[in-house]
Design a protein around this nucleic acid. Structure first.
Length: 297
DNA sequence: AGTAAACTCCGGAAGC
DNA sequence: TGCTTCCGGAGTTTAC
């Protein structure tokens, strides 16, 4: 499932392939996957893909207008810098979403809800999401701020796990809540999901049921380091493909081969050979080494 | 109030 | 072959 490293990989891949290109056409096969206050997706036609980046688990595609204010008065200068034209397409991959830039001649696979054609490019940007837990938001920050929001709310984006300072993480953890549930909550920290919570907690030697407030300074420091290391390594490996996830080039990631606990129930722990156990924490399948991650008292 | 658990959406995979 | 069950990101609702 796409978490921070997968979304980062997709955003980078997409940026490398389509940044700077102009949108020629948009084909929407399912209306109900589009939300936001930016109006119809057909507003994208004629805009340039200015930037593609990741925020939390979201891909933000900034689209700038290249029509020099034709619809408006001629007094306005280039509208490309004009906040009035700020339009961002936000893509959330949910669990099974794929955002790819592939050759337009490739067959359209089932559940492809959106295709975007580009000017003077053989590539086509596609959004495919069988379970539809993901979605697309067209967000207009300035002029449309008062217009009515359509459909699902865009999940908020908070601190980034790769950037959060140790002191901020420590403050965030000063709550009597299971550490795994807290790390998975996108409100205080945006980007961690089931896989990387399990991997980071194992590397930090922390049991997922531990109350966050009970972690001592050393444990918080180990966790801070483990989060950064596991996410960075996963980005370098192109993310983890455990089921549907593919990069922007529509290929599998490789980090699933380096998982130490996730999906390895019954296998020996890489550090102590104790069999990995699977349990349920906050309603999620959770993987631990019972020796490296002793249960809290 | 803060936390936790149970529900909702959905389709693919696994099991019987 | 065809059924049932499980799984989960994130929002919502309900219960402690």
């Amino acid at each position: 499932m796409p978490e921070l490293p997968e979304v980062e990989t997709v955003a980078r891949g997409l940026a490398a392939r389509v940044q700077g290109l102009v949108i020629a056409d948009v084909t929407l096969r399912r209306q109900d996957i589009v939300h936001g206050n930016g109006g119809s997706l057909h507003r994208l036609v004629g805009r340039r893909i200015a930037e593609v980046c990741r925020r939390g688990k979201q891909v933000h595609i900034q689209l700038q207008s290249i029509k020099p204010g034709r619809e408006r008065s001629g007094r306005e200068k280039s509208t490309s810098q004009n906040p009035v034209d700020a339009l961002t397409m936000v893509v959330h991959l949910g669990m099974t979403g794929r955002l790819t830039a592939v050759d337009a001649s490739e067959p359209i696979e089932q559940h492809t809800h959106l295709s975007v054609d580009l000017v003077d490019s053989p590539l086509q940007v596609r959004f495919c999401d069988p379970r539809r837990f993901g979605g697309i938001w067209l967000v207009c920050s300035e002029t449309c701020a008062t217009s009515r929001w359509k459909g699902r709310r865009l999940p908020p984006v908070a601190a980034d796990p790769l950037q959060i300072p140790l002191a901020d993480l420590r403050a965030m953890l000063a709550r009597r809540r299971q550490i795994k549930a807290l790390l998975m909550d996108q409100q205080p920290l945006s980007g961690m999901g089931n896989i990387y919570c399990d991997e980071a907690l194992h590397r930090a030697g922390i049991h997922p049921l531990t109350s966050a407030a009970n972690l001592d300074a050393h444990a918080v420091r180990r966790l801070h380091q483990a989060i950064r290391r596991v996410l960075s390594e996963a980005i370098r490996a192109g993310g983890s493909s455990v089921s549907d996830y593919r990069t922007a080039n529509n290929i599998r990631g490789a980090f699933q081969k380096r998982h130490r606990v996730y999906g390895r129930a019954g296998e020996p722990c890489a550090t102590c050979k104790t069999p990995i156990e699977r349990l349920l924490v906050a309603g999620r399948g959770t993987h631990i080494c019972p020796c490296c991650q002793p249960r809290p008292v």
